[in-house]
Design a protein around this nucleic acid. Structure first.
Lengths: 335, 335
DNA sequence: AGCACTTGCGCAAGCGCTTACTTTAAATAT
DNA sequence: ATATTTAAAGTAAGCGCTTGCGCAAGTGCT
């Protein structure tokens, strides 16, 4: 591998000078510069960023931890992060935890050891140990939808309450009395929050003759499929179901439809996330929107800020959710 | 940052010994080992993988270049790559080219300079210059669906011909005579291949009174939406359309439906890729399948093989495509 | 007792780059 | 003509790790 010494030898200068012309870190006379550049050209020199990083302590690399690349929730976040990262000359280590804490831990460990300049955790897999690792590493990080303990860290919070409240009230306004909720995986922080928000909100209406029930899902399509079976067993069936995410809602909807249950006539369904899919299914899904691209962009902005000035106060950003009414909801027929 | 010397000092050994206990690269007496491990514990030591990589020339990092993270085509490939990569203790630099050659070039350059151990290029953005960079870098790489010049490199080829042939013949067997094709972006290698395969196949039937036409799309939903407008202008309209990818087909289908054109009664539609979405739309899309997870997995297998033994002969793998008949196709009504 | 191995570990160079400190020579000031 | 400043570039240590080479003490053999 060709290095500064090789260039220096040919250009008849010191390797210091080579470094300075490459980095433009001090004045070098035009003639000298020319010699160096020509030598570089001649040797087809490619800098070794590992060596530079070792010397400077800066890698221009960040880690992005997500939980499920196949969940359409993430690609847009990734895109938001990636665009600005690349513009700012950062590369991204993508870590997919697969909802697996062990795997997440392993990835985070590797990120730390590989000296990333910062980490974005958008994997809602809450784990104290993982968190401890990161904090101790002193590597800047931002938490997306996962600041369980209101820890003092740059964080992005999703306010699911606003959207879920809209959804519940909308359903009630349509005359629904029996409203079910399909949750996400038990150990997923964001799923817990979504569920609890739903419960808190609907409880306020319990005396208005509104009943509810939680069915466990997994934030995947098959969770919705399984939930459909549970729901069909109910007698009477709920007239409306809110799902912890769109994938679940879609699995549910498809299964009910396949079993001859008309959506929304018989059951109204509301999702959460507003993934692209939700617009495209039939009927288009009423859902609660989260601006994922913007979230990704904001996450990387916070991170870069933090990287560039470690001692500014920790920042938080809130993202509201809001109901998008499409065609999977209608007035309750079985009054 | 704590390093070998700090540990060595506390454990009263040389840094060589520290290295050897950490890497288990030579025998160290149990007592010494214990002292070292305790010192590490005490200092909460975290190895610096940059330094190690600089010394060994191995980074345990690979690059994965794709063209559009938002295209559901990619996440499964990423997953296939990621799973095995993590199992083998590699981290992944994800580079999204956004169909932008400049951006791709920039990313590849960074990967090379950051000394990745290998690169998987699953971005069908053909560019000689980009290719030149990689080859010159001597970094192992594998090409997914992008070996334009049958270059001697580890490659994965998609055989679109098999699936497209099935699709065309299936449509003809259903009595379709006017079959359109919506292509992908002009400068996308895989799109060119898909289109050319279609043309080659359908040309064989031209004398059987079969006519065709190519409409340009972009492998995104809006490409399908625009194509719908073109198609509606045709008189008579084609009775069947094959799309270069599923996203296009979905955009097309949704738009035609919105304009009152029944699918498949009036127009049969076939997609390509078999993304999850295609199963979920209404009607479920007849499409040509590509096993993306397996492709990702195969890509990383090839790459790891290459990394571990540079001088084995270059490998190639072919992936057949095949027609999956769902409900967006039916017999031609306007005979 | 003398020799040859073996065992366990240390020395120090090197990976390719950065950067504080110095040197050299020319330009300017006195 | 000498002292001082300035401009341009070099010296070498250091980032944290690996690893070829070598050394001293211990073991076994004759």
């Amino acid at each position: 591998m060709v290095n500064y010494n090789d260039i220096a030898k040919i250009a008849q200068v010191s390797s210091t000078t080579v470094s300075h012309v490459i980095n433009k870190t001090r004045f070098v006379s035009p003639e000298t510069k020319k010699k160096v550049l020509e030598a570089m050209q001649k040797l087809n020199y490619k800098p070794n960023l590992l060596a530079r990083s070792l010397a400077t302590g800066v890698t221009h690399t960040i880690g992005l931890v997500i939980s499920d690349i196949k969940n359409p929730f993430y690609p847009e976040i990734i895109q938001g992060v990636e665009e600005l990262a690349v513009k700012s000359d950062y590369n991204i280590f993508l870590c997919n935890t697969d909802y697996d804490i062990e795997k997440g831990l392993k990835s985070i460990g590797a990120l730390i050891r590989k000296k990333v300049d910062g980490i974005i955790i958008a994997s809602s897999q809450a784990d104290k140990f993982l968190f401890k690792e990161i904090v101790e590493s002193t590597i800047p990080f931002v938490l997306v939808d996962w600041n369980e303990n209101k820890i003092n860290a740059d964080s992005i919070y999703f306010n699911f309450e606003s959207g879920i409240k809209e959804a519940v009230e909308y359903l009630i306004s349509l005359g629904h009395k029996k409203i079910y909720f399909i949750s996400g995986p038990k150990d997923l922080k964001t799923a817990k929050i979504r569920k609890n928000n739903f419960i808190n909100i609907i409880k306020k209406y319990e005396n208005n003759n509104i009943s509810y029930k939680i069915i466990e899902g997994n934030h995947k399509i098959d969770g919705g499929i399984n939930a459909a079976k549970e729901i069909e067993k109910e007698n009477p069936m709920p007239t409306a179901v809110i799902c912890s995410n769109d994938l679940t809602a879609i699995g549910l909807m498809k299964t009910l439809q396949a079993n001859g249950i008309k959506i929304p006539d018989k059951v109204s369904i509301i999702g959460l996330d507003n993934i692209m899919l939700s617009e495209i299914v039939s009927p288009p899904l009423t859902t609660i929107e989260l601006e994922r691209y913007l979230i990704g962009k904001t996450a990387i902005e916070l991170l870069l800020n933090r990287i560039n000035s470690k001692d500014i106060p920790k920042q938080t950003r809130y993202f509201q959710t809001k109901l998008i009414i499409r065609e999977s909801t209608t007035i309750a027929k079985n009054l």
